[in-house]
């Protein structure tokens, strides 16, 4: 992003950048940057808090008053989480010794009502990268279960210019968004850490995605290993 700021400024445009990694902004030197001490994913600090977001934007826009640069200012107020648990930070449903069978397809069906409530309440959803409607997510589950077992898995819905590993990633992202949004509708008071811990630690979908990661990581193919790194870690 800092590189883009430099490209635009060189072309005669004035730029203001919000920077999450101060050390990188120091090295790349965008002309005007506001470093914010928020976790990745929280560039403007707090979701659903227009007032806080406006304060951050206002601090950034103030930088256009500078007469010489580079300018790298620090935003003073902290907000949001300081990290998030990944799959490896919690015992997954596949490994935590629970006796109940893992049924990702059944789980999707059970969460559907909550997911639809979220969509209704919010008016938007992050689900949609695959283009497959959520009512047909059981097909995605079948594909990912087959892909967790071997490379010989595919879906008719996969576009020709998207490889199977890349499509598996899109499927995983859609399933994650579906589950997270359903959980946020079901338990609106849960914080981010609780939601991540639930997904990786208690759901069959989380265990399924992590099982694909385990298989791809164990291959000798760097491209598959890169895909695995984007699924869970």
């Amino acid at each position: 992003m800092s590189v883009l700021a430099r490209v635009f400024e060189t072309a005669g445009l004035t730029t203001v950048a919000v920077a999450l990694v101060r050390e990188h902004a120091e090295r790349v030197k965008p002309p005007r940057a506001l470093w914010v001490p928020f976790y990745f994913g929280y560039a403007l600090g707090k979701p659903d808090d227009p007032k806080f977001q406006h304060e951050v934007i206002s601090a950034a826009l103030d930088l256009v008053k500078a007469t010489a640069g580079p300018v790298l200012a620090d935003y003073p107020d902290d907000a949001g989480p300081v990290g998030m648990p990944q799959a490896s930070d919690v015992a997954t449903a596949a490994t935590n010794g629970e006796a109940k069978p893992l049924d990702a397809a059944g789980e999707i069906t059970a969460l559907r009502g909550y997911y639809e409530r979220w969509q209704e309440q919010r008016g938007r959803t992050a689900v949609g990268i695959t283009g497959i409607p959520q009512r047909r997510f059981r097909g995605i589950i079948r594909f990912l279960e087959a892909y967790a077992a071997s490379d010989d898995a595919d879906m008719d819905e996969r576009p020709d210019d998207v490889s199977i590993p890349q499509f598996a990633r899109y499927c995983a992202d859609d399933l994650k968004a579906f589950c997270y949004e359903a959980r946020m509708a079901q338990r609106p008071d849960d914080d981010e850490t609780e939601i991540h811990s639930w997904f990786w630690g208690e759901t069959a979908v989380g265990a399924l995605i992590d099982s694909i990661t385990q298989r791809l990581t164990a291959t000798d193919d760097p491209k598959l290993q890169a895909t695995a790194y984007g699924l869970s870690r």
Partner: peptide
């Protein structure tokens, strides 16, 4: 929607509010 490659950031924020990273409504306000 978002198809970012990294899983090193917390998507719960943008699931809740796209303005957290794409402040289009805030710019409309301004």
């Amino acid at each position: 929607v978002q198809s970012h490659f990294s899983i090193g950031f917390d998507r719960t924020a943008i699931y809740r509010d796209i303005n957290i990273t794409y402040p289009i409504d805030r710019m409309r306000d301004l």
